[in-house]
Nucleic acid binder design. Structure first.
Length: 572
DNA sequence: GCCGTTTTCGGCCCGACTGTTTTCAGTCG
C-alpha cells in the first residue's frame, strides 16, 4: 500500500474521531501522522521491508506505527473498519464542505439522514436544514455558499497557470502611488505544484485605494467581498484571489503567517512557546514582559526565534525548523544557477520553432548551452527523427561549429523506449550524440514489474544519459505509471545515470518528494523544460521551484555546471 | 496519540468571525 493511501486512512480516522467527540489532541495526532506520511520521501512499504522503525518518523509513535504495519501487511485496519461502522454512511463527505464541522455534520447526518454533498444541497434548498435548532437561515445560506466554493475548488489549478495570472495582477497594482511589498503568499509562494486559491498581500499609504483598484482590474471576473483592507475576487480560470493590505511594520509577520504551510506555522509556534514566546500574525509576544514585537520582514521574524531564514519552498513541516535551528538550511538552487536547457524540441519533430529560434531564446535567457533533443522515429504524429534525419541534424549542427548566437548547441535525442523495452534508434547513431535522453511515451498501463524492468533496461544501456519524466504523470489528467521508483533510483545511482526534473507545469516529474529521495540516494539530476516552442523555455522556473522543494542545491543539478564539467559528469 | 531544555505525565498554536445567543459554540485559515 502506497503512502498516499495510508495517509488517506489516517485522515479518515481523524475525521471519524472528531465526529465521535474525541479529544482534539488525539484527532490532531492522527492528522499530523497522516500529513507526515504524505510528505515522506520514502515509501513505508520499503521502510518496513528493510526492517526500518516507523517510530523514527516524527509524529508517528507506538500506536500509529502498529496500525500502519497492519495496514501495509494485511491491506486492512481493524480499528478503522470498526470506527467506520459506528457512523452513518457518507458522513465524512459532509466535513469537506466549508462551514460544516463535526458538530453540524453529525446533526445533518443523524437528524436529517443526509449522506452526501448533493443531499445537503437539496436539504438546504427545501428548507430542512434551517429548521434544525441553533441553525438558522443564515447558517444554511453560508453552507450553501460553502458547497459552491467546494465545487469550484475541486479542480486545483496548476502553478504554471496560476503564476502568470497573478503576476499580471501584481504588475497592474505595483505602480499605484504608495503601494509597497506587494507579493503572493500561500501555496503559490511555496511553489506547490497545484494551487487552491491565491493570497496576495501588501502595504500601502492608502489601502482602500489599492483595494478599489484590485476589484476594478480587467482580470477581475467577480467580486465576492470587499472592505477597506481586504477583498476577494474571482480571476480568469475560476481562481479565487484575496488581497489584504496590512500595516507596514507588521508586514513580515503577516507574510510569514499567510505563506504557511499551516503545519509549519503550528510547529513554529510550538517552538516559540518553549521559549516563552507567543507567535501570531501580528508579531511575537514575549510572555514574561507581555510586550508585542512587530516585524516588517520575515528574516527578522525567524531570527528572533533563533532560526535561520527558511525559504518558503521548505515550509512544509518536514525537518526544516530543526535544520534552521542548527544553521543547516542549505543554499538552495536558483534560476540564475542554470547554465542551459537539456530537453528541447524543434520543428524537426513536434516542436514549433527552429534550432535558430531556440538558440536565440537560450541566448536571451543567458544560457551557455542548449541541448536539441527531438523525438525519435516511432513517435508518429508528427514523425520523429529516423537515423537519416537525425544524422542530417547532427551534421547541420556540426557545420555551425556547434555554436549559434554564442550558445553551444548540443546534439541530442529524446529516444523512445518501445513497449518491448528496446530503444527505437540503433546504438551506432546514439553513440554520435552529445546527449541521449530516453523516455516512455506509450503502453503506460503495464504492470509495475514490466515497466520498472524496461526503465532499468534503458538505464543499463551504455548510450543513455538521462531518463526523462520518469513517472509520465500529467497532473490532473494522467496518473503516474506504476514504476517502482526506489528500484529506478538505485539503478540510476549504480550506473551513474541522470534522472530528469521535467519543468513543464503539468508534468513536474520527478516531483518534490521523489527529488528529495533521489538526491538522498546520490542520483544525478538534470532540469529540462521539454520546450516545444521558444516561450516554453521559460518553464525552467517551475522546475527550479519544485527542485527547491526537494531541497536541491546547485551541486545536485548537472546543468548548473560549466559545459565540459556537465558533459563529463553526464558521461561518467 | 505524541512527546520531552516543563522529560514518562501532563501538556498540546493562535486569533478572528459569525450566528444565535444572553455569554459562547462552531468553524476557519
Amino acid at each position: 500500500m502506497k503512502n498516499t493511501a495510508i495517509a488517506k486512512v489516517f485522515h479518515d480516522i481523524a475525521d471519524l474521531l472528531e465526529l465521535k467527540g474525541e479529544t482534539p489532541f488525539k484527532v490532531r495526532a492522527y492528522q499530523r501522522a497522516a500529513s507526515a506520511i504524505e510528505h515522506l520521501p520514502k515509501e513505508i512499504e520499503i521502510i518496513l521491508e528493510e526492517g526500518g522503525d516507523l517510530k523514527q518518523v516524527a509524529c508517528i509513535g507506538e500506536a500509529i506505527a502498529r496500525k500502519t504495519a497492519e495496514l501495509v501487511t494485511t491491506g486492512e485496519l481493524g480499528y478503522y473498519e470498526n470506527l467506520k461502522a459506528e457512523f452513518p454512511e457518507g458522513i465524512t463527505n459532509l466535513l469537506s464542505v466549508p462551514g460544516v464541522g463535526p458538530k453540524i455534520a453529525s446533526r445533518l447526518s443523524l437528524e436529517l439522514g443526509i449522506k452526501s454533498v448533493n443531499d445537503l444541497d437539496e436539504a438546504i434548498r427545501d428548507g430542512r436544514v434551517a429548521t434544525l435548532p441553533r441553525l438558522g437561515q443564515k447558517t444554511a445560506g453560508n453552507i450553501l455558499h460553502g458547497i459552491q466554493a467546494l465545487r469550484r475548488k475541486d479542480q486545483r489549478i496548476l502553478i504554471g497557470e496560476a503564476l502568470p495570472v497573478v503576476e499580471e495582477v501584481l504588475e497592474a497594482l505595483r505602480p499605484l502611488p504608495g503601494v509597497k511589498n506587494l507579493t503572493a503568499a500561500g501555496s503559490l509562494r511555496r511553489f506547490k505544484e497545484t494551487i487552491g486559491d491565491i493570497d496576495l498581500m501588501g502595504t500601502a499609504d492608502d489601502p482602500q485605494k489599492t483595494i478599489e483598484a484590485f476589484i476594478a482590474l480587467p482580470q477581475t471576473r467577480e467580486v465576492l467581498a470587499h472592505g477597506p483592507t481586504k477583498a476577494s475576487v474571482i480571476l480568469p480560470g475560476g481562481l479565487q484571489a484575496d488581497l489584504r493590505m496590512v500595516e507596514h511594520d507588521s508586514f513580515g509577520s503577516l507574510l510569514q503567517y499567510f505563506t504557511g504551510s499551516k503545519q509549519h506555522n503550528v510547529r513554529l509556534r510550538l517552538r516559540g512557546q518553549k521559549q516563552g514566546l507567543k507567535l501570531s500574525e501580528y508579531g511575537i509576544t514575549d510572555l514574561a514582559r507581555d510586550r508585542l514585537e512587530k516585524f516588517d520582514a520575515e528574516e527578522a521574524f525567524y531570527h528572533r526565534l533563533g532560526l535561520q531564514y527558511i525559504p518558503p519552498e521548505l515550509r512544509e513541516d518536514q525537518h526544516e525548523i530543526e535544520a534552521a535551528a542548527e544553521g543547516a538550511i542549505p543554499r538552495l538552487l536558483e534560476l540564475s544557477d542554470i547554465r542551459g536547457d537539456l530537453h528541447t524540441h524543434t520543428r524537426q519533430s513536434d516542436g514549433k520553432d527552429t534550432i535558430e529560434d531556440m538558440a536565440a531564446k537560450a541566448k536571451a535567457l543567458g544560457y551557455e548551452y542548449l541541448a536539441i533533443t527531438d523525438h525519435s522515429g516511432s513517435r508518429h504524429i508528427p514523425p520523429g527523427l529516423n537515423v537519416e534525419r537525425l544524422r542530417n541534424q547532427i551534421d547541420s549542427i556540426r557545420q555551425l561549429g556547434g555554436r549559434m548566437n554564442g550558445v553551444r548547441i548540443l546534439s541530442g535525442i529524446e529516444v523512445d523506449i518501445r513497449a518491448d523495452g528496446s530503444l527505437d534508434l540503433p546504438q551506432e547513431i546514439l553513440a554520435e550524440l552529445d546527449i541521449v535522453i530516453a523516455a516512455i511515451h506509450s503502453a503506460m498501463a503495464r504492470s509495475r514489474e514490466q515497466i520498472t524492468k524496461i526503465i532499468i533496461g534503458a538505464i543499463e544501456n551504455p548510450h543513455v544519459d538521462i531518463i526523462a519524466h520518469p513517472t509520465c504523470r500529467l497532473i490532473g489528467e494522467r496518473e503516474p505509471i506504476a514504476v517502482d521508483l526506489e528500484a529506478v533510483f538505485q539503478a540510476a545511482a549504480k550506473y551513474g545515470k541522470a534522472l530528469e526534473i521535467n519543468a513543464t507545469p503539468d508534468r513536474l516529474d520527478l516531483k518534490d518528494i521523489h527529488i528529495y529521495r533521489a538526491r538522498e540516494l546520490g542520483v544525478k539530476l538534470v532540469l529540462g523544460t521539454d520546450a516545444h516552442r521558444t516561450g516554453q523555455m521559460e518553464f525552467m522556473r517551475f522546475g527550479v521551484g519544485i527542485a527547491r522543494r526537494g531541497w536541491c542545491q546547485p551541486q545536485h543539478i548537472l546543468n548548473t555546471r560549466p559545459l565540459d564539467e556537465m558533459l563529463g559528469l553526464l558521461h561518467a
